[in-house]
Design a protein around this nucleic acid. Structure first.
Lengths: 245, 245
DNA sequence: TGGTTTGATTTGTGATCACACTTGCTTTGA
DNA sequence: TCAAAGCAAGTGTGATCACAAATCAAACCA
């Protein structure tokens, strides 16, 4: 077979095959734990063990311990002096601290995005708005997970447009840290009246559409402040009616 | 021996002994690599191997690979598709990106610190100013390392006063990322005229002393902008005179 | 009965090994 | 002479083992 023919043949094959990728076990464990953390599947103060997770994920301890180490360095988990690791507990100071950091950094990211998003990108996030309404309309019981996922996609779709390779990992770290807290608030939300978050998202999109960075920032801060404020009240009243260890 | 007596004896001993701590090998490796990275001991684009570092640090590969994994997640190092790891290369976009993030977050941290620092803390950082002048006076050749260390202490002494357990790790991550870049600039500084950075530090301390958050933020941004601007010019002129791989 | 001690189990840490993939060089064949 | 195949050294990944520290529980003594 001549060289040209082989070349052409390879190209034909390449066009039909999709790259298989080479994700390591460690990467999968890490992604899975991230997902669980952001989704709030672990409770604050819950202790995690390497062997326990390894069994649950059906791997050996090695990939798990490395994934845990990574999560500890980004403050998504906490290393106790006992060497055991737990998801960080909720405190009032931590809630305020996280909200301030998120407002600052995500606010900056969306302000940057507002000046950079092209019509196509804006249309893309606008489409997610519709998806949101759609989901809200049929009111499944799995709403909460779905809502959280969709909410995350919505925000990061915007942040990705800020064009900063430095800010985005920081935002991911912040979501990782506030995930377990937020979930508590979300559950309470769906019990309480729950003004629709879609309203907030709509005003974010509106601000982005007219490239109003300041308005986008303010709308975003209003959006992310809600669950934190809710959680804050909940925590304060809980500690008032009787403090327990 | 009675219980009370034993108790008292233990307390006496405890007062004289300093806690030995229980740092793992992995922690030491991690700290050492951090120090090297912030100090700019590794060059941008340099490739690091697990076994190579393990030999250099006289340990086995295990602690090194876990430390490398942690550094990769905080973007202090970069994982190539080959699975080898290197210190991230310098690009113009990355420089601007890092400076923007640092101005935003360190600016916020110092603004918070300005409103919270007590006279004792202010006196503490003011004392470092004197130490700086002292060092500058005798002009060793080891100036650069010493300067870098002192500069780091100065900044983090202030940041620690911001009272945010969320912002500080982010700042550490940013220093880790800009370390290799900055070092390049520092070297060039000491060749060039080098207006003294002490001047900038003095105006930072002055702003903190009168609790002027806005002035402190501006003085800080001016301080950290200098090496970045310097590096930026250097890079631009280098790419202008001929681009090489 | 209450507090202490002792022992077994669990857990994290580090070392070592086996395996697969990459890389660079040598060898081979046209 | 040159390109492709093959080989060898080096590298990251994951599994397993050994060990020390922590935890928990039962047994023990006062």
């Amino acid at each position: 077979m001549q060289k040209a023919a082989i070349e052409r043949n390879n190209e034909t094959i390449a066009a039909q095959l999709t790259p298989v990728g080479r994700e390591t076990v460690q990467d999968r464990v890490y992604s899975e734990l991230r997902r669980a953390l952001i989704g709030g599947l672990f409770e604050p103060s819950q202790v995690l063990t390497i062997r326990g997770l390894a069994d649950a994920l059906v791997t050996s301890t090695m990939p798990v311990r490395e994934a845990l180490g990574r999560l500890i360095t980004e403050k998504a988990l906490e290393a106790l002096p006992n060497r055991s690791v737990r998801v960080p507990p909720i405190t009032l100071e931590r809630i305020d601290d996280l909200l301030r950091a998120r407002s600052l950094i995500e606010g900056e990211a969306i302000a940057l995005a507002a000046t950079r998003m092209n019509p196509r990108q804006i249309a893309s996030v606008e489409a997610m708005l519709g998806e949101w309404d759609e989901m809200r309309a049929l009111k499944h019981k799995k709403d909460i997970d779905r809502e959280a996922t969709l909410n995350q996609s919505f925000h990061f779709e915007i942040y990705r447009c800020c064009g900063s390779a430095v800010l985005i990992p920081m935002i991911e770290s912040l979501w990782l840290q506030s995930g377990p807290c937020i979930r508590v608030a979300i559950y309470a939300f769906s019990d309480a009246g729950e003004v629709d978050t879609a309203h907030y998202h709509r005003s974010i999109v509106a601000a982005l559409a007219r490239q109003d960075a300041q308005a986008a920032r303010e709308a975003l801060v209003a959006d992310i402040s809600r669950p934190f404020a809710f959680l804050r009240d909940k925590l304060q009243s809980a500690s008032k009616e009787g403090l327990r260890a």
